[in-house]
Structure formats: C-alpha cells, structure tokens
C-alpha cells in the first residue's frame, strides 16, 4: 500500500464531491449558455475519477513508502512560525513582524552568531523599505498598533 497515493486519492475524491455538492445551487440562465455549473461539475467529476484511480493504484502498489515522516515536524514548526507572522502583520506591521520572524527562523535553524541574528533581520527590513516602499511605492502595512 502506498500511503501518498491513497491520501491524495481520498483528498481528491472528497474535494471533487464537496465542490460538486456546492454547484447544485448554481443557476442556468438561458438555453444557449451551459450555465455556471457546467464546467466546474466536469472538473469535480475528473477530480473524483483521478482520485479513484490513485486510490486503486495505491492499494495495489506493494512497494515500500520512501518518505520518512520524521522530519515533517521541522517543516510544520516553520509553517506555524510563518502563520504567526502573517497573523500579526495587521497589528504590529510588516517591518517589526518581519524582523521578529526572521530572527525566530534563524534561531530555530540553530544560528547562534549574534552578528547574523541581528544583521540579517535588519538587512532584510532595510531591503524591503528601500526597494518595495521607496523605489516601487508599495504601501507596506504599518500595523494598527502603530497608527
């Protein structure tokens, strides 16, 4: 049994089924037009079909699963750090949250050199300020706490 095939197959079938269910409320305007639901329903049907094929392939496949799940937690922790970063941007603004996030990710990656821990976050923030805010006139969010 191949876990990735089975997992992706099940997710594909569920997604296809859910979105197909949502199309049931879509209206059809006139006879010439196929309506808002026509193509999405085809896509959902295809997702279910490919999901079933993947599921069968996964059940029939008796080769060993190659991927180790030991290292996933490191990726998951970095995702949590980035999620926290994104969630605090509206409150403390882009610059402060970016500096803190880069510092956290560096620390998490076992960087302990004080120079690196300080210069990389500050350098990155300066780069965004000069290139994005000053040169390209992007209005970087300042955060509700600082406004």
């Amino acid at each position: 049994m191949k876990v990735p095939h089975i997992t992706s197959g099940i997710i594909s079938i569920c997604l296809g089924g859910l979105f197909y269910y949502l199309t049931l409320d879509f209206p059809k305007l006139n006879t010439a037009d196929t309506g808002a639901a026509f193509l999405p329903r085809i896509y959902c049907g295809l997702l279910i079909l490919f999901g079933i094929i993947l599921l069968i392939q996964g059940i029939r496949d008796h080769s060993k699963n190659e991927e180790s799940s030991q290292t996933v937690r490191y990726a998951l922790i970095s995702m949590v750090i980035v999620l926290a970063y994104i969630l605090v941007i509206p409150y403390i603004g882009f610059y402060v949250s970016t500096a803190l996030t880069i510092f956290s990710l560096l620390f998490f990656s076992k960087v302990r050199k004080a120079v690196t821990l300080v210069s990389v976050p500050l350098g990155a923030v300066l780069f965004v300020f000069l290139v994005f805010e000053k040169l390209l006139k992007v209005s970087i969010p300042m955060g509700s706490l600082f406004l």
Partner: peptide
C-alpha cells in the same frame, strides 16, 4: 536564505 525567501514570498 530560507527565512529571506519566506519574507520575499510574503512581501
């Protein structure tokens, strides 16, 4: 490089 890429993704 990795934290910098993540920052660039966001901005």
């Amino acid at each position: 490089l990795t934290p910098l890429i993540l920052m660039l993704c966001v901005v």
